[in-house]
């Protein structure tokens, strides 16, 4: 039985819906006109203006600092969390699972709001530190879920074999489990990194003066002007995304 015409038409419609607005944005980034209404000829003026904007570079630096620190921390905490959830079946793990799972389903605004309140109550200054704490917190859950999925497919008889052949527990973990699990941990880390770089809502709630990240800067550009520069920025981000996706696709295809 072949799928009918309606499913195919829907898929094409969905893809047009997804790509249409982004393509139009990309085209208008090369438009010399300040207001996108008419085509005034090809121009790289918005790109030039973007590169000379110091605030963009500062925001990019803040974003990368937060993303690198929180990804590293979340990879550690998320991996141990996944181990514990996979290995033990106690009442403690039930609560543990609830704590790991809830941040995935709760809307961002609730997490941002509750962290802001908590930081204010603790008199913790709002800035890169508070942003990083918030990012580690939501990244742990994503890393844990990705690693947990890998652990479920993991063949634990390999560990038993290593132990039978005389390896110590630690050697078995280090030389058998971790290398086999590394792709899962890396995949979780990559996801955490993208989510951290992309996050706006939670960051907006816990950010303070001088800790503008790229999404916060983009938001203020949308709200208060200089739209053509955002077009240029989005094309650059889109191109980078494309390269990363193609690279990771290439790597995984080679490995299998």
């Amino acid at each position: 039985m072949k799928p009918g015409r309606i499913p195919r038409a829907t898929l094409i419609l969905v893809l047009l819906f997804f790509y249409g607005p982004i393509l139009i944005l990309a085209v208008s980034s090369f438009n010399a006109s300040r207001f996108g209404g008419s085509w005034d000829g090809f121009s790289l003026r918005w790109y030039r203006q973007l590169f000379h904007d110091r605030a963009v570079w500062d925001a990019l630096r803040n974003t990368l600092i937060v993303a690198l620190v929180s990804t590293t921390a979340a990879m550690g905490l998320g991996t141990t969390a996944a181990f514990a959830l996979h290995r033990y079946r106690s009442r403690l793990q039930l609560w543990h699972y609830g704590l790991v799972y809830a941040p995935l389903v709760i809307p961002d605004i609730l997490m941002g709001m509750s962290l802001l309140l908590f930081f204010v109550s603790l008199r913790l200054p709002l800035g890169l530190l508070s942003i990083t704490l918030a990012h580690i917190t939501f990244c742990i859950s994503y890393v844990a879920m990705v690693v947990l999925a890998r652990l479920q497919d993991f063949d634990f008889s390999l560990i038993e074999a290593a132990l039978d052949l005389g390896a110590s527990r630690w050697t078995a973990i280090r030389h058998v489990l971790l290398p086999l699990l590394a792709p899962g941990v890396l995949a979780g880390g990559l996801l955490a990194f993208t989510l951290s770089v992309d996050d706006f809502v939670i960051t907006f709630f816990v950010a303070g003066p001088g800790s503008t990240t790229l999404p916060i800067y983009i938001y203020s550009m949308i709200k208060h002007g200089s739209p053509p520069m955002i077009n240029a920025l989005s094309v650059i981000l889109l191109a980078l995304t494309f390269i990363v996706v193609m690279l990771s696709q290439h790597l995984t295809e080679k490995r299998t």
């Binding site: 992309d198 706006f200 999404p215 983009i218 949308i222 989005s234 889109l238 995304t241």
Partner: peptide, 10 residues
């Protein structure tokens, strides 16, 4: 994979 805000802006 593009930023959420940029998609809204589009």
């Amino acid at each position: 994979w593009t930023n959420f805000l940029i998609r809204i802006f589009a």
